[in-house]
């Protein structure tokens, strides 16, 4: 139902948010990943995004940022029908690439997002609430609205709350 790929440094909080043991970068990198393992109705990615980079990066927590995914390989992969949630920075930069690969909906931040390694940080909290709303049967857009109305999220500073954009089919459901 959900596949998860994240930076190694964020595996614990990502696991807590998604309830799924994530594939992590490192040790997986763009060179070794089999993109078929991400093939599922909901793809949750939590990787470093860089404005204009054309790649997403992992993080070993020691200052090393291996390339986790490249735009070129995403385009060649099959994400047909998937809803893709990008928790990392600048998710919007990669939205079109996933749409090109067949994803019906992509959710990504238009700017920097902020999370934590162990605890559920702001961006993870939004992701968690959105996932809950999606599992309750709402569409991608309504699920985001519901997430944003949660008290825990409304208490966050504005810069940590606003920025998630929905690309593609807004009403897509799981």
């Amino acid at each position: 139902m959900i596949s998860v790929y994240c930076s190694y440094a964020w595996r614990i909080s990502t696991w807590r948010v998604t309830g799924v043991k994530p594939v992590t970068c490192p040790p997986i990198t763009f060179e070794t990943i089999d993109l078929d393992i991400l093939k599922s109705p909901l793809v949750y990615l939590r990787l470093h995004g860089v404005d204009g980079a054309g790649e997403m990066y992992g993080d070993d927590g020691q200052g090393n940022y291996p390339i986790a995914l490249t735009n070129a390989q995403i385009r060649q992969a099959d994400f047909r029908g998937s809803i893709v949630y990008l928790e990392g920075c600048n998710g919007d930069e990669y939205a079109q690439v996933f749409l090109d690969a067949g994803a019906k909906t992509v959710i990504g931040d238009i700017d920097a997002s902020y999370g934590k390694s162990w605890r559920i940080g702001p961006s993870s909290l939004i992701g968690q609430e959105w996932l809950r709303a999606m599992h309750s049967g709402l569409g991608a857009h309504d699920a985001m609205l519901k997430a944003m109305r949660q008290k825990t999220i409304m208490r966050l500073p504005e810069r940590l709350r606003f920025g998630m954009m929905i690309f593609g089919e807004e009403g897509a459901k799981l």
Partner: peptide, 16 residues
């Protein structure tokens, strides 16, 4: 201890 060390991190690398 681990939780107290868990700082808020920007989830992107510095851009161009």
């Amino acid at each position: 201890f681990l939780y107290s060390c868990d700082a808020l991190q920007e989830q992107g690398l510095a851009g161009s």
